Amino acid sequence: MHQFAKQFMTPLCLSLCGFAAQAQDAADKAAEAAAPLTANVSVVSQYISRGFRQSWGKPALQGGVDYAHPSGFSLGTWLSTVSDRYLENATVEWDVYGGYAGTLDNVGYNATLYYYKYPGAAYGPTAIKYDYGELSAGLSYKILYAKYNYTVSKDFFGIQGARGTGYLDIGANVDLGAGYTLNLHAGNGRVAGAGNAIWNWRDVKVGVAKVFDGGWTVAAAYTKAKGASNAYDAYTLGIPNASGALDISNPAAATVVFSLTKTF
């Protein structure tokens, strides 16, 4: 498989990222109002970020710690297990981030800088790293939100010379009452650099989260991505499975994911 197909298929995740992190927005906001330092741990049926299945259809363990200062500045870190069938020689995605958020009447605004690291992960004989950084800027109005992520590092997830790669995330979090929230999302990704448009993609998600007493959140969502080409249809790192055949999957295929999150 062409090296870009092997390199691109990974998170632009966390804040952006992470299905479990999105599903528990309501719980996180309530916790931050009570204490500046919060932590969360999640078990998910599979790790999906922006429509792509990064744990190869297997369960994942996730967790993070966030500090939110009353002034609006914040810092945090978040981790998730990933599959080495999806990301060569990788077992963990580690995100660190910091930013500022505020409100003006019913309008919320935020700007956050992220760095995504995949310890030990490298592609091919030249050991190209997957690590990258991006800047996110967002606005919200009542239940609606929109944010744009812009790659500021020279490379984007192993694709060299891809500074300027962008991802537009729009959606709504609808309070259904009784602790239920309807999560709606649509995303549009554009990979910068000559010849890289074949890796562009779009994704959608429809989910429901339920917040319980004690900081527990249960969520379920339907998610699907669609590439600008067929590059994602038969993704493989060239690693054989137990039967000796190459492990091949379509990480953008439609699926349903479940999560259980505890916020402290």
Rank of each mutant, 00 (worst) to 15 (best):
M1N: 05
F4H: 14
F4P: 13
Q7D: 11
F8W: 15
L12M: 07
C13I: 06
C13A: 11
L14V: 01
C17W: 03
Q24W: 08
A26N: 07
A27G: 03
D28G: 13
E32A: 11
E32Q: 10
S42H: 09
V44R: 11
Q46E: 12
Y47P: 05
Y47E: 09
S49K: 00
G51F: 05
F52H: 06
Q54C: 14
L61M: 13
V65K: 08
D66P: 14
Y67M: 07
A68Q: 12
H69C: 08
T77L: 14
W78M: 12
S83E: 09
E88G: 02
V92G: 00
E93T: 01
W94Y: 10
Y97V: 09
Y97R: 07
G98R: 03
G98W: 05
G99Y: 15
G99T: 02
N106G: 08
T112P: 04
L113R: 08
K117I: 06
K117N: 06
P119G: 04
G120A: 03
T126W: 01
K129G: 11
K129M: 10
S136A: 13
L139I: 14
L139T: 13
K142A: 12
K142E: 13
K154E: 06
K154C: 02
D155G: 03
G161Q: 06
R163A: 12
T165G: 02
T165W: 00
Y167G: 01
L168A: 12
D169C: 01
D169T: 07
A172Y: 01
L176W: 00
G177M: 07
T181I: 02
L184Y: 06
H185I: 00
G187V: 04
N196K: 08
N196S: 09
R202D: 10
V206Y: 07
K210V: 05
F212T: 12
F212H: 09
D213T: 14
W216R: 10
T217P: 13
T217G: 10
A221N: 01
A225L: 07
K226Q: 14
G227L: 03
A228S: 05
A231D: 08
D233C: 07
G238N: 05
G238Q: 01
A245K: 07
P251R: 03
A252D: 04
A252H: 01
A252N: 01
A253Q: 06
T255C: 00
L260R: 08
F264N: 00
